[in-house]
């Protein structure tokens, strides 16, 4: 059998972690919000970020998947290339399923169910869910893949460069996020950034091309590192 397909199916053996667990976590958050909503009933409705649990989950899954399955797959005589594409296909298929469910829930909440009867905005949020359903789907699929690939990339750094490589990577990332804002403050450019964001990003959909670019770069980087990774 084609080994890329073998890797794809290897990932799908654990259906619970892919199809059930994230929704159990998200569902828990939803139920809590629903109860609060039913109790409080504010006039303007309740807006909550509980949905983000799904996105945090896939980010963590990206780290775990590589750490758990890469040494196993290599031990089974799989090429690193086959591992990469099989894994990418598996994450893309699971992200596609997640996206469809998310969009259905979003449509249901905004349309037929009207805030679950208590004015709860959980699956359909302003800025995050705007425009036609297909556009929302494209956006959320890209966002899910980007987050998985961030996790995947971090794990790949560890596989390729070890513990100290990961420390170094973390340090660099930290410096970028500290020094970057400091420089912006020093040169008084925050207003420009603000204007640029205001002019270009009206909904999450406007971020999608950028996310896509980031995802592709992360994918290429991960692939490059895995090619040279040893056990």
């Amino acid at each position: 059998m084609n080994r890329t397909l073998g890797i794809f199916r290897m990932h799908w053996r654990d259906k619970f972690s892919v199809l059930v667990l994230p929704w159990v976590i998200c569902g828990f958050s939803f139920v809590v919000n629903l109860i609060v909503g039913a109790g409080v009933r504010p006039e303007e409705g309740i807006y909550t970020g509980g949905l983000s649990s799904i996105y945090v989950y896939v980010f963590v899954a990206g780290i775990v998947i590589l750490a758990q399955t890469f040494p196993f797959a290599l031990g089974m005589g799989v090429r690193r290339t086959d591992y990469f594409w099989g894994t990418l296909a598996a994450t893309a298929s699971s992200s596609a399923i997640t996206t469809v469910v998310l969009i259905l829930l979003s449509e249901a909440e905004a349309g037929w169910l009207n805030g679950w009867g208590v004015g709860l905005h959980f699956f359909h949020l302003p800025f995050v869910h705007e425009g036609p359903a297909w556009l929302q789907a494209a956006t959320h699929f890209t966002l899910l893949m980007t987050l998985i690939l961030i996790g995947f990339f971090i794990s790949a750094v560890y596989r390729r460069f070890g513990k100290f490589g990961l420390y170094a990577f973390g340090l660099v990332a930290l410096l970028v996020f500290i020094v970057g804002p400091l420089l912006l403050t020093y040169f008084e450019r925050w207003d420009d950034i603000g204007r640029w964001v205001e002019a270009n990003f009206h909904t999450l959909n406007d971020l999608t091309p950028w996310l896509l670019l980031v995802a592709v770069l992360l994918g290429l980087g991960s692939y490059g590192m895995l090619r040279k990774a040893t056990i």
Binding site: M1, R3, L5, G6, R9, M10, R13, F72, M76, G77, V78
Partner: peptide
């Protein structure tokens, strides 16, 4: 074992 079955011809 099922994964090995898929990967070894």
């Amino acid at each position: 074992l099922e994964t090995a079955a898929m990967l070894f011809p």
